[in-house]
């Protein structure tokens, strides 16, 4: 295994007000995988992403991106926040929001110009939103908002993408379109980490998975790690959800289950 690790986390602990949200986490993610981060509410999924982004300060531990400390590597990370995290009544249009993805590369004070606009238009085409480029953002549907945020991350031209529930509030057609986008990113050698809630679609969409519940339960290739025993450990007492289907638990039964 000489291929470089996209993400290497050692002994990561994050706490809010003495309450550990992530506890002693070790994680290795090889480059070029499409990884789901799965776990119950409060498992620390968003916290993990924010720690990797460097937005929250961990109590302990180290995080390396492509072999370097994250402080140096911020520009190499593309980020798609939950689309409920901003005020969509903000007076701006789609193209303007997507161009924000270039602000980091521009640096302080310099204004975006034609080059940034071209890149943004390209990204809008990739997410199928070209027709909406001058649309006021308050008039977008949930799925369209999500695609705008993905386009904004695309123009960052990063190596590692972190996405917090990109499928939330998205219809089936858009979900498929987003999955296609994620696969396109992977085929370009990018690493994509996605907080995902739908256990049913997990094995279909992703090739790598991390099961998380404050501690890391398991992490690795989907086929090896996404087992009923591991899910039982991850979701604790809620095992009934998996075993009650069709009387007896089996691999197919797992794939039919969804936890919201």
């Amino acid at each position: 295994m000489s291929s470089p690790l996209a993400l290497e986390i050692n002994d990561l602990t994050v706490a809010y007000h003495d309450k550990p949200v992530l506890w002693d986490l070790d994680l290795e993610v090889p480059a070029g995988v499409l990884m789901a981060i799965v776990g119950p509410n409060g498992a620390g999924k968003t916290t993990l992403i924010k720690a990797v982004l460097g937005v929250i300060r961990p109590a302990a531990g180290s995080i390396k991106l492509l072999g370097e400390p994250i402080e140096k590597m911020r520009r190499r990370i593309g980020y798609v926040p939950q689309h409920g995290s901003v005020d969509w009544d903000f007076p701006t249009d789609v193209l303007d929001v997507v161009m924000m993805g270039r602000y980091g590369a521009l640096g302080w004070i310099k204004r975006p110009g034609k080059r940034e606009k071209d890149v943004a238009l390209q990204a809008l085409e990739q997410v199928g939103m070209t027709a909406y480029k001058h649309r006021q953002i308050s008039q977008l549907s949930g799925g369209q908002r999500q695609r705008v945020f993905i386009a904004r991350a695309l123009v960052q031209d990063a190596d590692v993408y972190l996405m917090d529930e990109p499928f939330q509030g998205v219809d089936a057609t858009t979900e498929i379109a987003i999955v296609d986008l994620l696969r396109a990113l992977r085929s370009k050698g990018k690493t994509v980490l996605v907080v995902h809630h739908d256990l049913q679609t997990c094995p279909e969409y992703f090739d790598w998975v991390t099961l998380l519940n404050v501690r890391k339960i398991a992490s690795g290739p989907m086929a090896e790690v996404f087992t009923e025993a591991n899910l039982r450990k991850t979701y604790g007492g809620r095992t009934a959800i998996y075993s009650s289907i069709n009387g007896a638990p089996n691999n197919q039964g797992l794939a039919k289950t969804a936890v919201s």
Partner: peptide, 13 residues
């Protein structure tokens, strides 16, 4: 800063 401060932080502002 006004629209999405968390994202701004990620971009290094």
């Amino acid at each position: 800063l006004a629209f999405d401060p968390a994202y701004g932080e990620v971009l290094g502002f």
